[in-house]
Structure formats: structure tokens, C-alpha cells
Simulated assay, not measured.
Amino acid sequence: MPVRPPIHRPVGTRDKREADRDADRKRDPAIRALYKSARWQHARRMFLARHPLCAECQRRDRLTPANTVDHVVPHRGDPERFWDQDGWQALCASCHSRKTAAEDGGFGNARRQP
């Protein structure tokens, strides 16, 4: 049986899963617990089922499947704001990354606010 050749990655590059794990480790433990909960996983799944398209792409007349539930106003660990579905929107990964980077001051430059 043929064997798949190894994937070449230039020195210093990491795959997305590894970068996501690092970002998750840096997140406040209380906030991390909210996202890891079964309640969030269920709520996220149901929200994306009801809102299957990216809201930002739709505003630009594009149809892109959504795969992320975004808090329109960052919750900053506030459980009430975290669970308020009126403050959620469905986004594709690209739009969510762009929005998050703009809010945090750029990729890798997260500003922590109390």
C-alpha cells in the first residue's frame, strides 16, 4: 500500500490546531470553562443550525457557510452577556478572525480589558 509522503512545513510554522491549543491555554480559565461546557456546545450547534450562513458575508452579498458563533459585543467573561443569544451572530472562520483581530488590536496583539 502506498505511503503518503511527509508534509513539508518550513521551520517556525505550526498547524492551526497547535496554534488554537496555545490560544486556548492563554484564555482565562473561567472563560475557557464556558466554551468547554456541554451547554455551550449544544447552544452553538443549535444556533448554527438556525443561522447556517455567515452574517458578515451576507451583508456583502455573499453566501458562505457559518461555522462560528460570535459574540457581537465581547462578553469579557460576563456569563449573562455570554449566554444572551440576542448578542450572537453566525460567522465564517475568515470573518470571525478578521473581527477578532480588529477588536484585539491585530493578530497576536490581544489587549486584555478588565
Results as ranks from 00 to 15, higher is better:
27 R>S: 00
38 A>Y: 03
72 V>S: 03
14 R>F: 10
29 P>V: 08
6 P>L: 09
10 P>V: 00
26 K>S: 00
92 C>P: 05
58 Q>Y: 09
48 L>E: 06
103 E>F: 10
19 A>K: 13
100 T>L: 05
47 F>I: 07
69 V>A: 11
74 P>T: 06
37 S>Y: 12
71 H>D: 08
107 F>R: 14
28 D>N: 07
43 A>I: 02
12 G>K: 10
87 G>E: 06
110 A>R: 12
60 R>H: 15
86 D>Y: 12
3 V>P: 01
49 A>G: 02
25 R>P: 01
22 D>T: 00
47 F>T: 08
91 L>Q: 01
8 H>L: 10
36 K>E: 15
35 Y>R: 08
2 P>T: 03
49 A>N: 08
95 C>M: 07
90 A>K: 03
32 R>V: 04
77 G>M: 07
65 P>H: 10
89 Q>L: 09
46 M>W: 00
53 L>Q: 08
51 H>I: 05
8 H>D: 06
12 G>Y: 10
52 P>H: 07
113 Q>G: 08
101 A>Y: 06
89 Q>N: 13
109 N>P: 02
43 A>H: 04
101 A>W: 02
99 K>N: 06
88 W>C: 03
40 W>S: 07
68 T>K: 14
7 I>N: 14
16 K>F: 15
56 E>T: 14
11 V>M: 05
42 H>T: 08
44 R>F: 03
18 E>P: 02
53 L>M: 04
52 P>R: 07
105 G>R: 12
100 T>M: 03
3 V>R: 10
69 V>R: 08
113 Q>W: 11
87 G>C: 09
38 A>P: 01
42 H>K: 11
35 Y>E: 08
50 R>L: 06
94 S>M: 05
104 D>S: 10
62 R>G: 03
36 K>L: 12
61 D>I: 05
47 F>A: 05
98 R>H: 11
51 H>R: 06
78 D>N: 15
72 V>P: 01
81 R>C: 03
88 W>Q: 08
69 V>E: 09
62 R>A: 12
43 A>F: 02
24 D>S: 12
47 F>E: 11
8 H>A: 09
42 H>L: 10
22 D>K: 08
29 P>Q: 04
46 M>T: 05
80 E>T: 10
64 T>F: 05
